[in-house]
Design a protein around this nucleic acid. Structure first.
Lengths: 219, 219
DNA sequence: GTGTATATCTCGGGG
DNA sequence: CCCCGAGGTATACAC
Protein backbone atom coordinates (compact mmCIF):
# COMPACT_ATOMS: atom_id res chain seq x y z
CA UNK A 1 0.00 0.00 0.00
CA UNK A 2 1.30 3.38 -1.02
CA UNK A 3 0.23 6.49 0.88
CA UNK A 4 0.75 9.91 -0.63
CA UNK A 5 -0.21 13.19 0.95
CA UNK A 6 -0.25 15.81 -1.75
CA UNK A 7 -1.85 18.97 -3.02
CA UNK A 8 -3.74 17.77 -6.06
CA UNK A 9 -6.77 18.16 -8.26
CA UNK A 10 -8.75 15.20 -9.54
CA UNK A 11 -11.04 14.54 -12.50
CA UNK A 12 -13.26 11.54 -12.95
CA UNK A 13 -15.08 10.75 -16.17
CA UNK A 14 -17.16 7.65 -16.46
CA UNK A 15 -20.63 6.90 -15.20
CA UNK A 16 -20.73 10.63 -14.49
CA UNK A 17 -18.26 13.48 -14.50
CA UNK A 18 -16.79 14.80 -11.29
CA UNK A 19 -14.06 17.28 -10.51
CA UNK A 20 -12.08 18.07 -7.37
CA UNK A 21 -10.34 21.45 -7.26
CA UNK A 22 -6.87 21.78 -5.83
CA UNK A 23 -6.43 20.89 -2.15
CA UNK A 24 -4.27 18.71 0.09
CA UNK A 25 -5.54 15.14 0.20
CA UNK A 26 -4.51 11.57 0.93
CA UNK A 27 -4.02 9.34 -2.11
CA UNK A 28 -4.07 5.64 -1.27
CA UNK A 29 -2.92 3.08 -3.82
CA UNK A 30 -3.71 -0.47 -2.79
CA UNK A 31 -1.81 -3.60 -3.78
CA UNK A 32 -4.56 -4.56 -6.24
CA UNK A 33 -4.30 -1.17 -7.95
CA UNK A 34 -7.35 0.49 -6.38
CA UNK A 35 -6.81 4.23 -6.00
CA UNK A 36 -8.64 6.21 -3.30
CA UNK A 37 -8.56 9.97 -2.76
CA UNK A 38 -9.54 10.90 0.79
CA UNK A 39 -10.19 14.24 2.45
CA UNK A 40 -9.65 14.78 6.17
CA UNK A 41 -13.33 14.42 6.94
CA UNK A 42 -16.56 13.13 5.59
CA UNK A 43 -16.86 9.50 6.43
CA UNK A 44 -15.55 6.35 4.95
CA UNK A 45 -16.31 7.21 1.37
CA UNK A 46 -13.40 8.68 -0.61
CA UNK A 47 -13.95 11.90 -2.53
CA UNK A 48 -12.94 10.12 -5.69
CA UNK A 49 -11.62 6.68 -6.51
CA UNK A 50 -11.03 3.98 -9.09
CA UNK A 51 -11.49 0.35 -8.18
CA UNK A 52 -9.37 -2.52 -9.41
CA UNK A 53 -8.94 -3.82 -12.02
CA UNK A 54 -7.42 -0.76 -13.62
CA UNK A 55 -4.29 0.59 -15.24
CA UNK A 56 -2.27 3.30 -13.52
CA UNK A 57 -0.08 5.45 -15.73
CA UNK A 58 2.20 7.52 -13.56
CA UNK A 59 3.33 10.58 -15.55
CA UNK A 60 5.14 13.79 -14.67
CA UNK A 61 2.92 15.21 -11.93
CA UNK A 62 -0.10 13.61 -13.54
CA UNK A 63 -1.52 10.15 -12.98
CA UNK A 64 -4.00 8.70 -15.42
CA UNK A 65 -5.96 5.72 -14.18
CA UNK A 66 -8.21 3.85 -16.60
CA UNK A 67 -10.38 0.80 -16.14
CA UNK A 68 -11.69 -1.76 -18.65
CA UNK A 69 -15.05 0.04 -18.82
CA UNK A 70 -13.31 3.13 -20.23
CA UNK A 71 -13.72 5.22 -17.11
CA UNK A 72 -10.81 7.50 -16.28
CA UNK A 73 -9.47 9.15 -13.15
CA UNK A 74 -6.87 11.85 -13.66
CA UNK A 75 -4.89 13.09 -10.66
CA UNK A 76 -2.81 16.21 -11.11
CA UNK A 77 -0.16 16.38 -8.41
CA UNK A 78 0.94 19.88 -7.54
CA UNK A 79 3.01 19.28 -4.43
CA UNK A 80 3.85 15.97 -2.78
CA UNK A 81 4.12 16.34 1.01
CA UNK A 82 4.66 12.70 1.89
CA UNK A 83 5.06 9.44 -0.01
CA UNK A 84 5.48 6.09 1.70
CA UNK A 85 4.89 2.43 0.94
CA UNK A 86 4.03 -0.43 3.24
CA UNK A 87 3.73 -4.16 2.77
CA UNK A 88 0.53 -5.29 4.45
CA UNK A 89 0.08 -8.80 3.07
CA UNK A 90 -3.31 -10.34 2.38
CA UNK A 91 -6.12 -9.85 4.85
CA UNK A 92 -7.91 -12.79 6.45
CA UNK A 93 -11.18 -10.90 6.00
CA UNK A 94 -14.20 -10.07 8.07
CA UNK A 95 -16.45 -12.36 10.07
CA UNK A 96 -19.98 -11.09 10.42
CA UNK A 97 -22.88 -12.27 12.53
CA UNK A 98 -26.39 -10.95 12.71
CA UNK A 99 -27.08 -10.13 9.07
CA UNK A 100 -30.26 -11.07 7.23
CA UNK A 101 -28.84 -14.35 5.96
CA UNK A 102 -28.25 -15.53 9.55
CA UNK A 103 -31.79 -14.62 10.47
CA UNK A 104 -33.11 -16.46 7.41
CA UNK A 105 -31.22 -19.64 8.34
CA UNK A 106 -32.57 -19.53 11.88
CA UNK A 107 -36.16 -18.96 10.76
CA UNK A 108 -35.91 -21.65 8.07
CA UNK A 109 -34.93 -24.06 10.84
CA UNK A 110 -37.71 -22.85 13.14
CA UNK A 111 -40.70 -21.72 11.03
CA UNK A 112 -42.89 -22.34 14.06
CA UNK A 113 -41.37 -19.18 15.54
CA UNK A 114 -43.04 -17.21 12.76
CA UNK A 115 -46.44 -18.78 13.32
CA UNK A 116 -47.54 -21.66 15.49
CA UNK A 117 -47.69 -24.82 13.38
CA UNK A 118 -46.00 -23.35 10.29
CA UNK A 119 -43.77 -25.63 8.21
CA UNK A 120 -41.17 -24.82 5.55
CA UNK A 121 -41.90 -25.66 1.91
CA UNK A 122 -38.88 -23.98 0.30
CA UNK A 123 -36.18 -21.43 1.02
CA UNK A 124 -35.37 -18.84 -1.70
CA UNK A 125 -38.38 -19.94 -3.77
CA UNK A 126 -37.83 -18.59 -7.29
CA UNK A 127 -40.37 -16.38 -9.07
CA UNK A 128 -40.01 -14.37 -12.27
CA UNK A 129 -39.41 -11.23 -10.26
CA UNK A 130 -36.99 -12.64 -7.71
CA UNK A 131 -36.70 -15.17 -4.90
CA UNK A 132 -39.15 -15.39 -2.00
CA UNK A 133 -37.20 -15.77 1.24
CA UNK A 134 -39.35 -18.55 2.69
CA UNK A 135 -42.35 -20.32 1.22
CA UNK A 136 -44.24 -22.00 4.06
CA UNK A 137 -47.44 -23.83 4.83
CA UNK A 138 -49.56 -22.57 7.70
CA UNK A 139 -51.26 -24.78 10.25
CA UNK A 140 -54.53 -24.47 8.26
CA UNK A 141 -52.81 -25.62 5.06
CA UNK A 142 -52.61 -22.23 3.32
CA UNK A 143 -49.39 -21.28 1.57
CA UNK A 144 -47.56 -18.34 3.16
CA UNK A 145 -44.79 -16.24 1.63
CA UNK A 146 -42.41 -14.96 4.29
CA UNK A 147 -40.18 -11.96 3.63
CA UNK A 148 -37.34 -11.66 6.10
CA UNK A 149 -35.65 -8.37 6.93
CA UNK A 150 -33.26 -7.30 9.62
CA UNK A 151 -35.30 -4.11 9.82
CA UNK A 152 -38.88 -4.10 8.60
CA UNK A 153 -39.59 -1.02 6.50
CA UNK A 154 -41.90 -0.06 3.67
CA UNK A 155 -39.55 -1.56 1.06
CA UNK A 156 -40.07 -4.99 2.57
CA UNK A 157 -43.85 -4.66 2.37
CA UNK A 158 -43.61 -3.55 -1.28
CA UNK A 159 -41.30 -6.43 -2.10
CA UNK A 160 -43.59 -8.97 -0.46
CA UNK A 161 -46.63 -7.44 -2.19
CA UNK A 162 -44.96 -7.97 -5.57
CA UNK A 163 -44.19 -11.59 -4.76
CA UNK A 164 -47.74 -12.22 -3.58
CA UNK A 165 -49.15 -10.72 -6.77
CA UNK A 166 -47.15 -13.21 -8.83
CA UNK A 167 -47.55 -16.19 -6.51
CA UNK A 168 -51.31 -15.79 -6.48
CA UNK A 169 -51.40 -16.28 -10.25
CA UNK A 170 -50.19 -19.85 -9.72
CA UNK A 171 -53.33 -21.97 -9.26
CA UNK A 172 -51.26 -24.63 -7.50
CA UNK A 173 -50.30 -22.17 -4.75
CA UNK A 174 -53.14 -19.64 -4.56
CA UNK A 175 -54.43 -18.29 -2.33
CA UNK A 176 -51.10 -17.24 -0.83
CA UNK A 177 -50.85 -14.82 2.06
CA UNK A 178 -47.79 -12.91 3.25
CA UNK A 179 -45.87 -12.40 6.46
CA UNK A 180 -43.10 -9.88 7.06
CA UNK A 181 -40.66 -11.13 9.68
CA UNK A 182 -38.04 -8.80 11.09
CA UNK A 183 -36.18 -7.99 14.28
CA UNK A 184 -38.04 -4.70 14.39
CA UNK A 185 -40.81 -3.35 12.20
CA UNK A 186 -41.46 0.37 11.77
CA UNK A 187 -44.96 1.69 12.44
CA UNK A 188 -45.39 2.83 8.82
CA UNK A 189 -44.49 -0.61 7.53
CA UNK A 190 -46.94 -2.19 9.98
CA UNK A 191 -49.70 0.13 8.81
CA UNK A 192 -49.07 -0.56 5.13
CA UNK A 193 -48.81 -4.29 5.78
CA UNK A 194 -52.09 -4.31 7.69
CA UNK A 195 -53.73 -2.37 4.86
CA UNK A 196 -52.69 -5.08 2.43
CA UNK A 197 -53.56 -8.02 4.65
CA UNK A 198 -49.92 -8.85 5.27
CA UNK A 199 -48.95 -10.16 8.67
CA UNK A 200 -46.09 -8.78 10.74
CA UNK A 201 -43.93 -10.78 13.10
CA UNK A 202 -41.10 -9.34 15.15
CA UNK A 203 -38.56 -11.99 15.98
CA UNK A 204 -35.88 -11.95 18.65
CA UNK A 205 -32.58 -12.86 17.00
CA UNK A 206 -30.77 -13.62 20.24
CA UNK A 207 -33.63 -15.79 21.49
CA UNK A 208 -33.68 -17.69 18.17
CA UNK A 209 -29.96 -18.24 18.44
CA UNK A 210 -30.62 -19.57 21.92
CA UNK A 211 -33.16 -22.10 20.60
CA UNK A 212 -30.71 -23.10 17.88
CA UNK A 213 -27.87 -23.72 20.32
CA UNK A 214 -30.23 -25.66 22.62
CA UNK A 215 -31.16 -27.91 19.70
CA UNK A 216 -27.51 -28.43 18.85
CA UNK A 217 -26.75 -29.28 22.46
CA UNK A 218 -29.24 -32.17 22.32
CA UNK A 219 -27.25 -33.95 19.62
CA UNK B 1 -5.22 13.10 9.46
CA UNK B 2 -3.34 10.39 11.28
CA UNK B 3 -2.11 7.33 9.42
CA UNK B 4 -1.06 4.23 11.32
CA UNK B 5 0.17 1.03 9.80
CA UNK B 6 -0.08 -1.69 12.41
CA UNK B 7 -0.68 -5.33 13.09
CA UNK B 8 -4.04 -5.29 14.78
CA UNK B 9 -7.31 -7.07 15.36
CA UNK B 10 -10.65 -5.28 15.33
CA UNK B 11 -14.06 -5.92 16.83
CA UNK B 12 -17.26 -4.10 15.99
CA UNK B 13 -20.44 -4.48 17.97
CA UNK B 14 -23.52 -2.51 17.06
CA UNK B 15 -26.08 -3.09 14.37
CA UNK B 16 -24.33 -6.44 13.89
CA UNK B 17 -21.19 -8.09 15.19
CA UNK B 18 -18.04 -8.25 13.12
CA UNK B 19 -14.53 -9.39 13.91
CA UNK B 20 -11.21 -8.95 12.12
CA UNK B 21 -8.44 -11.37 13.12
CA UNK B 22 -4.88 -10.17 13.51
CA UNK B 23 -3.21 -8.76 10.37
CA UNK B 24 -1.31 -5.71 9.21
CA UNK B 25 -3.68 -2.90 8.20
CA UNK B 26 -3.92 0.84 7.72
CA UNK B 27 -5.76 2.76 10.41
CA UNK B 28 -6.87 6.21 9.30
CA UNK B 29 -8.10 8.76 11.82
CA UNK B 30 -9.65 11.81 10.21
CA UNK B 31 -9.80 15.29 11.64
CA UNK B 32 -13.48 14.87 12.49
CA UNK B 33 -12.73 11.70 14.47
CA UNK B 34 -13.81 9.14 11.87
CA UNK B 35 -11.77 5.96 12.13
CA UNK B 36 -11.24 3.72 9.09
CA UNK B 37 -9.47 0.36 8.98
CA UNK B 38 -8.28 -0.52 5.48
CA UNK B 39 -6.72 -3.67 4.04
CA UNK B 40 -4.37 -3.58 1.06
CA UNK B 41 -7.13 -4.60 -1.33
CA UNK B 42 -10.83 -4.68 -1.79
CA UNK B 43 -12.03 -1.33 -2.89
CA UNK B 44 -13.08 1.84 -1.28
CA UNK B 45 -15.00 0.42 1.63
CA UNK B 46 -12.93 -0.05 4.78
CA UNK B 47 -12.95 -3.45 6.46
CA UNK B 48 -14.29 -1.76 9.56
CA UNK B 49 -14.90 1.80 10.60
CA UNK B 50 -16.64 4.23 12.93
CA UNK B 51 -18.01 7.46 11.58
CA UNK B 52 -17.98 10.78 13.37
CA UNK B 53 -19.33 11.83 15.78
CA UNK B 54 -17.67 9.42 18.14
CA UNK B 55 -15.39 9.20 21.12
CA UNK B 56 -11.92 7.68 20.78
CA UNK B 57 -10.33 6.31 23.92
CA UNK B 58 -6.72 5.55 23.22
CA UNK B 59 -5.50 3.00 25.77
CA UNK B 60 -2.41 0.83 26.10
CA UNK B 61 -2.37 -1.02 22.78
CA UNK B 62 -6.15 -0.89 22.69
CA UNK B 63 -8.40 1.78 21.22
CA UNK B 64 -12.04 1.86 22.13
CA UNK B 65 -14.23 3.97 19.89
CA UNK B 66 -17.84 4.53 20.82
CA UNK B 67 -20.58 6.54 19.16
CA UNK B 68 -23.75 8.09 20.58
CA UNK B 69 -25.84 5.10 19.41
CA UNK B 70 -23.84 2.81 21.71
CA UNK B 71 -21.96 1.05 18.94
CA UNK B 72 -18.35 0.20 19.68
CA UNK B 73 -15.23 -0.44 17.67
CA UNK B 74 -12.32 -1.95 19.54
CA UNK B 75 -8.89 -1.98 17.89
CA UNK B 76 -6.20 -4.07 19.53
CA UNK B 77 -2.78 -2.88 18.37
CA UNK B 78 -0.14 -5.57 18.43
CA UNK B 79 2.68 -3.88 16.57
CA UNK B 80 2.83 -0.34 15.20
CA UNK B 81 4.91 -0.17 12.02
CA UNK B 82 4.31 3.46 11.15
CA UNK B 83 2.50 6.41 12.70
CA UNK B 84 2.32 9.82 11.05
CA UNK B 85 0.07 12.87 11.08
CA UNK B 86 -0.70 15.37 8.36
CA UNK B 87 -2.59 18.62 8.26
CA UNK B 88 -4.84 18.58 5.21
CA UNK B 89 -7.20 21.46 5.84
CA UNK B 90 -10.80 21.51 4.74
CA UNK B 91 -11.73 20.24 1.30
CA UNK B 92 -13.56 22.36 -1.26
CA UNK B 93 -15.67 19.33 -2.20
CA UNK B 94 -16.77 17.58 -5.34
CA UNK B 95 -18.51 18.94 -8.45
CA UNK B 96 -20.65 16.39 -10.27
CA UNK B 97 -22.37 16.26 -13.64
CA UNK B 98 -24.49 13.48 -15.07
CA UNK B 99 -26.58 12.53 -12.07
CA UNK B 100 -30.34 12.08 -12.21
CA UNK B 101 -31.01 15.79 -11.75
CA UNK B 102 -29.00 16.61 -14.89
CA UNK B 103 -30.88 14.00 -16.90
CA UNK B 104 -34.15 15.48 -15.67
CA UNK B 105 -33.18 18.95 -16.89
CA UNK B 106 -32.28 17.63 -20.34
CA UNK B 107 -35.49 15.63 -20.71
CA UNK B 108 -37.59 18.54 -19.48
CA UNK B 109 -36.09 20.57 -22.34
CA UNK B 110 -36.66 17.79 -24.87
CA UNK B 111 -39.78 15.80 -23.91
CA UNK B 112 -40.10 14.73 -27.56
CA UNK B 113 -37.13 12.42 -26.90
CA UNK B 114 -39.30 10.46 -24.48
CA UNK B 115 -42.17 10.08 -26.94
CA UNK B 116 -42.78 11.63 -30.34
CA UNK B 117 -44.99 14.70 -29.95
CA UNK B 118 -44.83 14.83 -26.14
CA UNK B 119 -44.91 18.24 -24.45
CA UNK B 120 -44.01 19.28 -20.92
CA UNK B 121 -46.76 20.39 -18.57
CA UNK B 122 -44.71 20.68 -15.39
CA UNK B 123 -41.42 19.59 -13.84
CA UNK B 124 -41.43 18.28 -10.25
CA UNK B 125 -45.23 18.27 -10.25
CA UNK B 126 -46.20 18.14 -6.58
CA UNK B 127 -48.52 15.48 -5.23
CA UNK B 128 -49.28 14.69 -1.60
CA UNK B 129 -46.92 11.73 -1.74
CA UNK B 130 -44.01 13.43 -3.42
CA UNK B 131 -43.02 15.17 -6.65
CA UNK B 132 -43.53 13.59 -10.08
CA UNK B 133 -40.37 14.16 -12.12
CA UNK B 134 -42.17 15.30 -15.29
CA UNK B 135 -45.86 15.71 -16.01
CA UNK B 136 -46.36 15.71 -19.77
CA UNK B 137 -49.05 15.62 -22.43
CA UNK B 138 -48.80 12.96 -25.12
CA UNK B 139 -49.48 13.57 -28.80
CA UNK B 140 -53.00 12.17 -28.33
CA UNK B 141 -53.69 14.59 -25.47
CA UNK B 142 -53.43 12.12 -22.60
CA UNK B 143 -51.54 13.17 -19.48
CA UNK B 144 -48.36 11.16 -18.87
CA UNK B 145 -46.33 10.95 -15.65
CA UNK B 146 -42.63 10.44 -16.38
CA UNK B 147 -40.31 9.02 -13.75
CA UNK B 148 -36.64 9.61 -14.54
CA UNK B 149 -33.83 7.39 -13.31
CA UNK B 150 -30.22 7.05 -14.23
CA UNK B 151 -30.75 3.29 -14.04
CA UNK B 152 -34.25 1.88 -14.29
CA UNK B 153 -34.92 -0.68 -11.58
CA UNK B 154 -37.93 -2.07 -9.78
CA UNK B 155 -37.89 0.74 -7.22
CA UNK B 156 -38.59 3.23 -9.99
CA UNK B 157 -41.62 1.26 -11.17
CA UNK B 158 -42.97 1.13 -7.62
CA UNK B 159 -42.44 4.84 -7.18
CA UNK B 160 -44.21 5.65 -10.44
CA UNK B 161 -47.06 3.28 -9.57
CA UNK B 162 -47.66 5.18 -6.33
CA UNK B 163 -47.73 8.49 -8.19
CA UNK B 164 -50.11 7.16 -10.86
CA UNK B 165 -52.47 5.84 -8.22
CA UNK B 166 -52.63 9.32 -6.78
CA UNK B 167 -52.74 11.27 -10.05
CA UNK B 168 -55.60 9.15 -11.33
CA UNK B 169 -57.74 10.28 -8.39
CA UNK B 170 -57.68 13.79 -9.88
CA UNK B 171 -60.60 14.03 -12.36
CA UNK B 172 -58.85 16.93 -14.11
CA UNK B 173 -55.90 14.74 -15.00
CA UNK B 174 -57.26 11.19 -15.22
CA UNK B 175 -56.67 8.98 -17.04
CA UNK B 176 -52.92 9.35 -16.53
CA UNK B 177 -50.46 6.78 -17.83
CA UNK B 178 -46.83 6.34 -16.80
CA UNK B 179 -43.46 6.18 -18.50
CA UNK B 180 -40.18 5.18 -16.89
CA UNK B 181 -37.28 6.94 -18.63
CA UNK B 182 -33.71 5.86 -17.86
CA UNK B 183 -30.33 5.43 -19.47
CA UNK B 184 -30.76 1.69 -19.02
CA UNK B 185 -33.67 -0.37 -17.71
CA UNK B 186 -33.23 -3.78 -16.12
CA UNK B 187 -35.26 -6.76 -17.35
CA UNK B 188 -37.14 -7.23 -14.07
CA UNK B 189 -38.14 -3.59 -14.06
CA UNK B 190 -39.35 -3.89 -17.68
CA UNK B 191 -41.37 -6.98 -16.78
CA UNK B 192 -43.02 -5.30 -13.82
CA UNK B 193 -43.62 -2.10 -15.79
CA UNK B 194 -45.24 -4.01 -18.68
CA UNK B 195 -47.37 -5.88 -16.18
CA UNK B 196 -48.69 -2.57 -14.86
CA UNK B 197 -49.14 -0.90 -18.22
CA UNK B 198 -46.19 1.42 -17.63
CA UNK B 199 -44.05 2.35 -20.62
CA UNK B 200 -40.27 2.10 -20.67
CA UNK B 201 -37.95 4.41 -22.60
CA UNK B 202 -34.17 4.13 -22.64
CA UNK B 203 -32.54 7.50 -23.34
CA UNK B 204 -29.01 8.31 -24.42
CA UNK B 205 -27.61 10.95 -22.07
CA UNK B 206 -24.68 11.88 -24.29
CA UNK B 207 -26.92 12.21 -27.35
CA UNK B 208 -29.30 14.41 -25.33
CA UNK B 209 -26.41 16.57 -24.24
CA UNK B 210 -25.45 16.79 -27.90
CA UNK B 211 -28.93 18.02 -28.85
CA UNK B 212 -28.78 20.51 -25.99
CA UNK B 213 -25.44 21.94 -27.08
CA UNK B 214 -26.62 22.11 -30.70
CA UNK B 215 -29.63 24.10 -29.55
CA UNK B 216 -27.40 26.41 -27.56
CA UNK B 217 -25.12 26.88 -30.55
CA UNK B 218 -28.04 28.21 -32.59
CA UNK B 219 -28.49 31.18 -30.23
C1' DG C 1 -35.98 14.44 13.77
C1' DT C 2 -38.27 11.29 10.54
C1' DG C 3 -39.16 9.76 6.03
C1' DT C 4 -37.93 9.46 1.15
C1' DA C 5 -34.97 9.04 -2.88
C1' DT C 6 -30.24 8.76 -4.77
C1' DA C 7 -25.54 6.52 -5.33
C1' DT C 8 -19.41 6.40 -9.90
C1' DC C 9 -23.42 3.19 -4.30
C1' DT C 10 -20.25 -1.53 -2.78
C1' DC C 11 -20.43 -6.25 -2.10
C1' DG C 12 -21.61 -10.98 -2.57
C1' DG C 13 -24.29 -14.84 -4.56
C1' DG C 14 -26.64 -17.41 -8.26
C1' DG C 15 -27.73 -18.53 -12.94
C1' DC D 1 -20.92 -12.26 -17.45
C1' DC D 2 -25.21 -10.04 -15.88
C1' DC D 3 -28.87 -9.87 -12.60
C1' DC D 4 -30.48 -9.36 -8.12
C1' DG D 5 -30.80 -8.14 -3.23
C1' DA D 6 -28.55 -6.61 1.23
C1' DG D 7 -25.98 -3.04 3.49
C1' DG D 8 -23.31 -1.25 10.26
C1' DT D 9 -25.55 0.98 3.47
C1' DA D 10 -24.16 6.69 3.48
C1' DT D 11 -25.93 11.02 2.03
C1' DA D 12 -28.86 14.83 0.77
C1' DC D 13 -33.22 16.91 1.05
C1' DA D 14 -38.08 17.72 2.21
C1' DC D 15 -41.61 17.84 5.72
Amino acid sequence: MRLIVARCSVDYAGRLSARLPSAVRLIMVKADGSVLVHADGGSYKPLNWMNAPNHVEEGEGRWTITNPKGETLVITLEEVLSDSSHDLGTDPGLDKDGVEADLQVLLADHPGEIEEGMTLLEREYATDIGPVDLLCRAADGQVVAVEIKRRGEIDGVEQLTRYLEFLNRDPLLAPVRGVLAAQAIKPQAKTLAADRGIGCVEVDYDALRGIESNVLRLF
